[in-house]
Design a protein around this nucleic acid. Sequence first.
DNA 1: TCGAACGGCGAGAGCGCTCTCACCTGCATC
DNA 2: GATGCAGGTGAGAGCGCTCTCGCCGTTCGA
Lengths: 346, 346
Amino acid sequence: MSCCGYKESVPASREPKRVTLEEVARVAGVSRATVSRVVNGVSSVDQNIRVVVERAISATGYLPNLAARSLVTRRADAIALVLPSENRIVGDPFFTQIVTGVTRIVRPLGVHLVLMMTGPDTGEQVVTDLRQGRLDGVILVHTHTNDPLPELLVKAHRPVVLSARPSSAVPITFVDVNQTAGGALAAEHLVGRGCRRVATITGSLDRPPGHERLAGFRAAMAGLGQPDIVVVQGDFTRESGAAAMRRLLAEFPPVDGVFIASDLMAEGALPVLRRYGRSVPDDVAIVGFDDSTAALTCDPPLTTVRQPVEDMAAEMARQLLRQVDDPDTPVRSVIFEPALVVRESA
Amino acid sequence: MSCCGYKESVPASREPKRVTLEEVARVAGVSRATVSRVVNGVSSVDQNIRVVVERAISATGYLPNLAARSLVTRRADAIALVLPSENRIVGDPFFTQIVTGVTRIVRPLGVHLVLMMTGPDTGEQVVTDLRQGRLDGVILVHTHTNDPLPELLVKAHRPVVLSARPSSAVPITFVDVNQTAGGALAAEHLVGRGCRRVATITGSLDRPPGHERLAGFRAAMAGLGQPDIVVVQGDFTRESGAAAMRRLLAEFPPVDGVFIASDLMAEGALPVLRRYGRSVPDDVAIVGFDDSTAALTCDPPLTTVRQPVEDMAAEMARQLLRQVDDPDTPVRSVIFEPALVVRESA
DNA sequence: TCGAACGGCGAGAGCGCTCTCACCTGCATC
DNA sequence: GATGCAGGTGAGAGCGCTCTCGCCGTTCGA
């Protein structure tokens, strides 16, 4: 095995001799088929033989070659997590929670999580990987409003799950939080602590989350007897939060409570308040949205609406794998309820 | 071959008819081998035939099945990025940069990035995936001091790269920043702006980064004529930063400049300073380390030592792929130089 | 003029697995 | 005693690709 290069390119000593089904079958004195049955947990195997085979497996240290299996099963046992490459999304703890949630479901099943940041060619890349059998399905997180990818995948009849309600009416499975209810939670809390001159800084209103959070907040405020609230528009970025707060203080100085549609915007808004000499929460109460780590690092820590991101991510994984198992699984949407996390800002 | 359900489980209409090498070969009127040569860019193909084959490929919409290829090439074209699951690491922008850097190298080569958060069984998982041919190599980011995985992989002669100098003397390829030089940068800046009562809050001193940053800082301060500096130990967490700052103010009230060995700790320390009525940078100048987003969201924004994380990550990917291509590539370490980013805190 | 050398191509043998199908027992049934 | 029917098992045909090897025709040196 050593003297005369039986495989010159790689020193034999290095290459741990690969053990195949064949090998295990020989050791166990059965056929390849039977070993395969044992490995895959098929029940119709004689108990005694099963034991013999299992012993042979651990004796040889056999591990199935996944490429070979994949070739015949047509499963990659890998899914992709596609994230927008903007820094404001990833780099957010939100992201960690997504990964953690997905991993929780996927890992015990031996399914790999392939990470892709969107780039100019991500769409084709994903479709290609799917067609090449490298990927079983795709989780699309925070896709842009006009991203053609979701529709593309649906048309190609490929397993796909979205992290939020799609902007257009594509028949696609998604997982979302009840944004409207989240807005309502914020309203109730602000009114409950005595705010009477309430405003809100919204996210991008052309996207469902921004739109729905505002709608929920507005409706709840009206229900609480305060139909007239000041609305300033942001776009979910930190900078837009700061700018919106400046505008708000200029246009509506007596404000005493603000619902800011994302923690990131709130993080931008708080220093502005400080600079204008308003103390939080005494002069102005602030409620954010997301319960990101930003909420914790803010000064003061943010009262905010929490989305159960990790659970939602786990659900996305579940929904995706369901589709992988049965491509004809009906489209479905799962909505999670948000919760208010009370800290110091309101 | 067609009439009588040759594969009942999947409706034929759904399944886009797969086109194989065989098919392309038939269309082009050549052998499978020749098509394979064209697909893989082997030069010894007649120009005319090459054109014919290429035409056949695009006519049929052929895409190679990667499982089949993988079966014979023994390459998965996938690498894993293993990250500690603690929130303080991921969820950091640092993490985004790692992913971006690795992706930049890996994506154009069609190599997948598989994400794994460390868990109780990550080690075995990774080794198994490697042995099963699902993974070509592993990038280990911020492994724990006593994680056996690096050594395990080195012994198994598997491609692996570390994100920092290993704590023990394992012969392993790693990419790191010149921590010592980083500490020196901080020292020079503090002294340069006139600080004369300087202190430092360190990271965990049992780990190379914490140790080296302190050593570099200390040596540089001594060289600048200030051998006596106050040292308070932290452990890289935000909380430890706050605690250390409290201790520092109690033990050494006249302090006028602090080098804090991570932005995260600085983020914890700044509110403490504010609460004690010390203004930054007027009363106390602060220099952090990492240039994380924390540095930007701090109030005031942090002067900090930047590691070129994205470039370092790209280098890790390059080093790993080099090992994958040639398992006998010599072990190597690549050290990047840090830079000082001057903002408002010092 | 002839053999050698070489560029270019196809046949075919795998890679390691799954899964169908035929076969073989043994046992109950007619 | 012939038949049916289980539960188990093995032979073998792929899955789609790469890559070695041998063949063929052309060109070149002697």
